[in-house]
Amino acid sequence: MPADPKNGHPAPGEPMLSVEGIALRFGGVQALAGVEFTIYAGEICAIIGPNGAGKTSMLNVLNGAYQPSEGTITFKGRTRRKMHPRVAALEGMARTFQNVALFKGMSTLDNVMAGRNLKMHSNFVACLLPVGPSRAEEARHRAHADEVISFLEIEDIRNVPVGRLPYGLQKRVELARALAAEPDLLLLDEPMAGMNRGEKAEMSRFILETKARFGTTMALIEHDMSVVMELSDHIVVLDYGRKIADGTPEEVRTDQTVIDAYLGVATEDDA
């Protein structure tokens, strides 16, 4: 493994991650079957589909939370049969969860700092002391964490235990924790779920700013089609665990299979 995980970062437009023939079962449920797609460096790739389509399962396969029974995952040029969450993190993948998975008893700052845990290397003995290399490292990383915190405009809740925060802010802290890892690929599972219009707009702005400022490649699961159309460069549509469409927002919007399977349903829901 290269010492610097940034080694092998694909050039913009090159494949960042691709999957082939992914299958995953839970007992009788075929959550994913023969799924293949590619996420290109620098793009925001939306993964959409009706409830239970297998979107979250797909993200879990990508970062190794689930192990597929078939298929391969190629991340930054290296092909594997399965990922492992820690390896994924080491190689530059970060993610957020559909149902916020923060460290509830810890402050915003500590949550964000935890996102940088992999980058900190002070040894145990140094960490017993109030001065010296471990404190210097701590201060360096705290400065970076504070940058992420001000980027996402959550300075006011920097020292508040996140368990006490409203849901919308928790979602933002979770994004901050993921960004603190300076990932090459960021997986976002419904970052705007349960938010009102204003909060959604704010979150969209942060996602676009992240792309503009850091060039982070993103896979985004989202149900709100207007958000998807606004943010994404590329859309993959899943239905009953299979990929039914893959293309630019324009292509997907006009795809008859998608309209039948998903958009039609969504429009009925909205009406």
């Binding site: 969450p85 993610r95 923060l102 460290f103 509830k104 500590d110 845990n117």
Partner: peptide
């Protein structure tokens, strides 16, 4: 006191609060 304010203390609390998430941040 110092240990709990270092990366080790944070890793412990992360494991305590949500071990799945601790693993995905690489702990």
């Amino acid at each position: 006191w110092n240990l709990m304010r270092s990366r080790f203390g944070r890793a412990w609390m992360a494991v305590r609060d949500m071990d799945v998430a601790a693993e995905i941040v690489g702990i």
